[in-house]
C-alpha cells in the first residue's frame, strides 16, 4: 500500500487521513504554498509552514482554520509522521515529508534550487518516493544565475530612464513580484506597484520579508512624470487601459517562459527576463537524484517527457494527474503556453 493515493480530490494519505494540496474541499489539507493551484479555500482545516503564514491567510481568507508549523518540526497525524521542509519556491513554500512504517514519501510542491531573497533555500530530503513538479521539464529550460538576470533588469530600467520612458515590469502577483522587488537595485529610482501587488507585499512584510519602499500607482496624481519609475504589476495588466497613464513605457516580463522567443512575442512585451521560481532541467535532475528516491512520481508540467527520461536513467517513474489546466485533455500546447496560466493561477 503506497503512502499516497490519487483520488478525485487529489493526493490522499490514508495512514494520516489527510490530503496534500487538494483541489476540492476536504476535511484536512496539508498545503505546500499559497499559490491558488495548491491552496484552495473551503477545507475544514489546513496545515502549512509558519514562515508564509500571513500570505496563506490572505489567500484562504481570515476565517480559514490553519495550523502552522516550523520547517523541520515533526508531528504525528494518526499513523503518519509529517514534517515540512523548505522548497525555495516562494515565502513559506514547503515540501511535505510523510513517513509511515519506515517508508518515506516527499511531495515537492513547486520548488527551485536558485537563491531567492524572499525565502529559505530548498533543502534536499532523503526519501523512497519523491513526487516532483515538472513545469519546465525540458532540457531547453536552463536558468542563468538570478544575479545576472537582475543586472539585466537594472540596466533596462536605467536605459529607460535615460530615454525618458517608464519601466513596467510584469510578474506574478504573489511570489515573483516580491522576489523582483526584493532583488532590484532600489537606488536607481522610485518604485511603484499595482494595487494587487501592494496587498501581497503587505502580507510579505507581515512574514518578515524585507522589501524596498513601494508606492501605489493609484495614489499618484494624473499628470505625474513616470519616466524615472519602475512599476511592478501582474501580467494581466498588459493590454489594459491601466497602462495608458504611464505615457511612453517599456514593458518587460519576468518568467521562465521568456526563454522561448515565440512565447515571449505572444505576450507582446518589449523585454523578457528569464527568471523562474521553478527548477530548470538540470536542477530538476539534480534535485531528484539528491533525494536518493527510487520511485519518482511526476506532476504539474512536462510529465511524460520527464518520466520517459527518468525511466531511461533507471528510475521507476510515473505520472500523477493534476488539475493543472489542459493536461487532462493531453493538450501539450496549454501546458507550455503561459497564456493559459493567468497570474491568479501561478503554476
Amino acid at each position: 500500500m503506497p503512502i499516497l493515493q490519487e483520488t478525485p480530490s487529489g493526493l490522499y494519505c490514508e495512514a494520516g487521513d489527510f490530503f496534500v494540496d487538494p483541489w476540492r474541499p476536504v476535511r484536512r489539507a496539508v498545503v505546500t504554498h499559497a499559490h491558488s493551484d495548491h491552496a484552495r479555500s473551503g477545507c475544514e482545516s489546513y496545515l502549512a509552514a509558519r514562515s508564509g503564514a500571513a500570505i496563506l491567510q490572505m489567500r484562504l481568507g481570515p476565517h480559514a482554520r490553519i495550523s502552522f508549523v516550523e520547517y523541520g518540526q515533526s508531528l504525528m497525524i494518526r499513523a503518519a509522521r509529517v514534517s515540512l521542509h523548505p522548497a525555495g519556491h516562494m515565502t513559506g513554500s514547503a515540501q511535505v515529508r510523510i513517513e509511515v512504517d519506515g517508508e518515506v514519501c516527499v511531495v515537492s510542491g513547486d520548488y527551485k534550487l536558485q537563491p531567492d531573497p524572499t525565502c529559505t533555500p530548498f533543502e534536499p530530503v532523503r526519501c523512497h518516493t519523491f513526487i516532483t513538479e515538472s513545469t519546465f521539464g525540458l532540457p531547453l529550460y536552463r536558468w542563468e544565475h538570478p544575479q545576472v538576470v537582475m543586472q539585466e533588469v537594472n540596466a533596462w530600467w536605467l536605459d529607460n530612464q535615460r530615454r525618458g520612458a517608464a519601466s513596467l515590469l510584469l510578474g506574478y502577483t504573489v511570489g515573483k513580484a516580491q522576489r523582483l522587488l526584493a532583488s532590484v537595485d532600489a537606488s536607481i529610482g522610485p518604485i511603484y506597484a499595482h494595487g494587487a501587488v501592494i496587498s501581497a507585499c503587505r502580507a510579505y512584510r507581515a512574514c518578515g520579508v524585507a522589501l524596498p519602499e513601494i508606492r501605489s500607482v493609484m495614489d499618484t496624481p494624473t499628470k505625474f512624470d513616470w519616466s524615472q519609475a519602475l512599476i511592478v504589476a501582474p501580467p494581466s495588466a498588459m493590454g489594459t487601459t491601466w497602462l495608458r497613464r504611464f505615457g511612453d513605457v517599456s514593458t518587460a516580463m519576468a518568467s521562465g517562459w521568456m526563454r522561448v522567443r515565440g512565447i515571449r512575442r505572444r505576450r507582446a512585451v518589449d523585454r523578457g527576463f528569464v527568471l523562474s521560481d521553478h527548477v530548470d532541467w538540470s536542477d530538476l535532475m539534480k534535485a531528484i537524484s539528491e533525494t536518493g528516491a527510487e520511485h519518482i512520481w511526476v506532476t504539474h508540467g512536462y510529465t511524460q517527457q520527464v518520466v520517459r527520461t527518468l525511466q531511461t536513467r533507471g528510475f521507476s517513474a510515473r505520472t500523477v494527474a493534476t488539475q493543472f489546466k489542459g493536461e487532462a485533455a493531453g493538450e501539450e500546447a496549454e501546458v507550455s503556453d503561459p497564456a493559459a496560466v493567468d497570474d491568479t493561477n501561478e503554476p
Binding site: L138, P139, L140, V260, R261, Y302, E332
Partner: peptide
C-alpha cells in the same frame, strides 16, 4: 525524441 520534444515546444 527529447530533442524533438524541445523542437515541438520552440
Amino acid at each position: 525524441w527529447l530533442f524533438d520534444e524541445c523542437y515541438e515546444a520552440v
